[in-house]
Amino acid sequence: MWSIIQSVLAALIGVQKDRKRQQDFASEKPLGFIVAAILVTLIFVLILILVANIAAG
C-alpha cells in the first residue's frame, strides 16, 4: 500500500529509482496504481483550490 503511494508521488514529480520502477512493473495488477493516482491527483487539486482560496481571501 505505502509502496504504491510512494510510486504515485514519485510519478507526480517525475523522479523514481530504477530498482523501484522494476519492482512496480513486476506487479501483475495495475488497478492499485490507477486508483492511487486518481486519489493523489484529486488531493493535489484540492490543495491547489485551498491555496487559491487562501490567496484570494
Partner: peptide
C-alpha cells in the same frame, strides 16, 4: 551511472 535520485529530487 544511470541515476542519482537525491540529485534529481534536488533539481526538481
Amino acid at each position: 551511472f544511470h541515476e542519482h535520485t537525491s540529485v534529481e529530487v534536488l533539481w526538481t
